[in-house]
Design a protein around this nucleic acid. Structure first.
Lengths: 239, 239
DNA sequence: TACTTTTCACCTAGGTGCGAAGAT
DNA sequence: ATCTTCGCACCTAGGTGAAAAGTA
């Protein structure tokens, strides 16, 4: 199982499900930037074998593309805001256009990727990946959010799941054509895919000894059906 | 002539035309907040005499409502951003709901108002009108943006102008029903209304003696038809 | 009478996967 | 054969004034 699939287009396509996080344990009066980038999961290119409904390695990865850092547009946040609000990356877009001028994240089709969420204490503008590595930053990775970039869906069950859960795809829903057998297969897949869990994650950060230190967490997404929820905590050294 | 009319509703209504400004003469590395508030133009209540197509004083103003300050949502801006971008207040909403919880600007219907644009050097959060008066701030007033708050349009020519120029009202356009006589009257009105001029204004600020000082300006709006443009410069002491 | 509120058809703006056509 | 692109119908989301209904 290689996770879900995400469409990439020339003009940019949103991710679905959206990655949404909320923190706890930050210092209310500090300023933070929340960031997301997408890194390669391996050095391979894939192809999809329709007759077996499975992904196969199809060679070495294509040359790497310019790596972009998505700065959440509401940044800078105060710690106070981040303790109250959910941070949603719904406007983030993925593209296969190497010359993209919109700041979208550029990916190779038929390659596997892993999104990462970063939080850093705000000092000045962060516009390059290099800058990110020099600042005080914590990086959180949730394995279930990995995906294969595609220009058209390969696995039909993933298409079905997206149509059934993305409100913008409602026009393609036709629940009558779902046999009970198919519904069973889908429900089975739900337990092995990103869909099974909310993209809202709980992250904890513990501070290095100070009595003011609090853990950071991301709470479950209440907007989606029960089967799309999950909870999990990551703990990292404090900022 | 009492300027244009702006609809106010319980849930909030956008202003149209939108107030849009761009500055020059700021310090690129400084941070600024851009703000808008709306003040009473007089202490009167008005009514509209349909048979004469004119506004009449109808008594003393109603009791004042909570005065709100609209902080442009993209604030804080860097000086650099403000020198490049147009600042648009398209998302600002007007309401007659005294209990509004959305941060909209609260107005009395049938009263005259004057929007004001403020720019201040960013120090900390500004959330009250009182705070505004204590900070280093410059206030710009453009007389042509004054309006009467209404719950339904009174002057039919204003309705016509809004339908003809607001893309969201395209469904009500029926240019065929406009006789040449009416079109003439409208064109005449255009020269006496806010519509005659773009709500993008040019503001200059000169600094108090430093060689680094530059004027601040707001440039004309190129998105609207020629007859909706104007240019004008206001100069104020530097921040 | 003199407003104000509610509901509605009709827009703008833009996010979906489909399927035909294009590219290699 | 294996992807990628493009135009499309069908959605979500929400900004318009008209007209009917409500208020006082």
């Amino acid at each position: 199982d290689l996770g879900t699939e995400m469409i990439i287009t020339k003009s940019g396509r949103r991710m679905f499900p959206t990655i949404r996080v909320s923190f706890s344990g930050l210092q209310p009066s500090c300023k933070y930037a929340v960031l997301l980038d997408v890194v390669s999961l391996d050095n391979k290119r894939y192809r999809y074998a329709y007759h077996r409904s499975s992904w196969l390695v199809a060679g070495k990865a294509d040359p790497p593309l310019p790596r972009r850092l998505y700065i959440h547009p509401d940044s800078p946040f105060t710690g106070e805001q981040l303790l109250k609000q959910i941070v949603s990356f719904e406007k983030l877009k993925l593209t296969n256009n190497e010359m993209d001028q919109h700041g979208h994240i550029i990916l190779n089709s038929m390659h596997r990727y892993q999104p990462r969420v970063h939080i850093m204490k705000y000092k000045d503008k962060i516009t390059t990946v290099a800058a990110l590595e020099k600042e005080e930053v914590r990086t959180f990775v949730f394995d279930e959010t990995s995906f294969t970039a595609v220009t058209a869906y390969q696995n039909q069950l993933i298409t079905r799941l997206k149509i059934d859960s993305n409100p913008f795809a409602k026009g393609f829903r036709d629940s009558s054509r779902l046999s009970e057998f198919e519904r069973g297969r889908i429900d089975k897949m739900i337990h092995g895919h990103t869909y099974a869990r909310s993209p809202i994650r709980s992250i904890s950060e513990t501070h290095g000894g100070s009595s003011k230190d609090r853990p950071i967490s991301i709470s479950p997404n209440l907007k989606r059906p029960q089967r799309f929820r999950y909870e999990m905590v990551q703990t990292l050294p404090p900022l």
